[in-house]
Design a protein around this nucleic acid. Structure first.
Lengths: 248, 248
DNA sequence: CAGTGGTCTAGACCACAGC
DNA sequence: CTGTGGTCTAGACCACTGG
């Protein structure tokens, strides 16, 4: 009788793995498990919680618990290289490549003193003025990513970068016009569980990690011109990188 | 009285955020919370569970619940570029850069028919023979990563690649000797919650995501010579990539 | 409206850590 | 041994979903 919750979860997991239960299907509910296995409601609940924390199921209040589906977007960090000779035999995760479109929402712009981590990344002094641009990206009306860009205010003041609509080509086109075209990027990634606030911001299902990406853009002269802090719903993305050799 | 668990978690989270409780500190236990807040033990437990699922705390059976610490390794995907002019103002997450050493353990080698996803990635036919090399990486005796490499058996049969010890320089040096030096890599990443088996394999704390990396190595002639499937403890890593321009 | 998940209580017994 | 977390029960009430 020990570990009833685990045992029930194991059986349900096996039914998911075997394909008997497909993504989107409704799992047996709490009352059903109470009946089938003769356990208390809280125990049935715990069994379902195990699946939820493994990312295998999502709960829908008032409706049921469902097998989760995974339909990621593909984020290609370096688009140029990706068009070259990589067609040999790739694509491990199939992704709805480009049917769905990223839409930008909730753009906000402000000028503030640089927080410590930002001044460090941009090689400024703490408190130096920076322009902050934050926005969210939606797919099919659902938030999948937030992004906040920080740029040295001295460099971009008076340009379209300080306005919500940066015009055709976006920030990087404007930087290029200033003679500050980004030539290199450094990305740092981390995956972790979201805070409560982040869970609400991205409307994340339970047990969904986030990927935090910090990207610094450098000009050809190695001047740091932008720090972009992104937060991605890990369940919505496959990230792709293409690297030249000597890479390990 | 509504949402007691959430309220208690909020207070504890604030005490962690303010620095009153530091990484490694012991949180008030379940009995303590029962006393302080006048709730049932299960409710106190739920409060702590909230922090655990946010990755802010870890439970130690028979001992207590502790504020979690985050001391990641830095995995630099392209080492060569990283030594160049990136010193301008980097390093958003401080990481114990290179004090700690990755140690390889549990190396296993076998020759098997290629599973579907492997044959696809390597542009083989399903069932074609492949050499599989799997191993785990330990830091301070703790598993932080597993890796499984798949190589076309026709290419590498009879070489050191089919032996546990591949010799100096590893797989890539041996491939180079065969005229199959990797010139490019394609990496695909995904972050997700681990299965139970993966949790045990990597001895993961609760609420720790994993990062799954699939990397295909190509020769200069665009021949796919290796698929490496890696699984990283997300709490142990910061991933770093360096990209040239046109990268978005 | 009935059925679902969401939260909570008060109690029980167990397994493990550390003194 | 005592205190900690780990699991479970039996019941209660609430909030939301969908027909």
């Amino acid at each position: 009788m020990a570990d009833s919750a685990r045992r029930i979860a194991d059986e349900l997991r096996a039914r998911i793995g075997s394909g008997e239960l497909s993504p989107g299907d409704r799992l047996p509910g709490e009352p059903a498990l109470v009946g089938e296995y003769g356990v208390a409601k809280e125990t049935a609940r715990r069994a379902l919680t195990l699946l939820v924390t493994e990312g295998l199921a999502v709960r829908k209040r008032g409706s049921g618990t469902y097998v989760r589906s995974f339909r990621p977007l593909r984020r290609v960090a370096n688009k140029r290289l990706s068009q070259a000779g990589w067609g040999n035999g790739r694509s491990i995760w199939s992704a709805d490549v480009d049917d769905r479109e990223l839409r930008v929402a909730d753009v906000e712009v402000a000028e503030v003193p640089a927080p410590e981590r930002v001044s460090r990344a941009l090689a400024l002094s703490e408190g130096d003025p920076v322009v902050v641009r934050s926005r969210r990206y939606l797919v099919d009306g659902e938030a999948v990513q937030t992004a906040t860009s920080w740029l040295p205010a001295e460099l971009v003041r008076g340009t379209a970068i300080t306005r919500p609509d940066t015009g055709s080509g976006g920030i990087y086109a404007r930087l290029a016009e200033l003679g500050l075209a980004p030539a290199r990027f450094a990305e740092e990634l981390r995956a972790r569980m979201p805070s409560r606030a982040e869970t609400e911001l991205l409307a994340l299902p339970e047990a969904t990690p986030v990927v935090e990406i910090h990207r610094v853009a450098f000009t050809a002269d190695d001047l740091a011109v932008e720090l972009n802090e992104m937060l991605l719903d890990a369940g919505s993305y496959v990230l792709e990188y293409h690297l030249d050799s000597q890479s390990e």
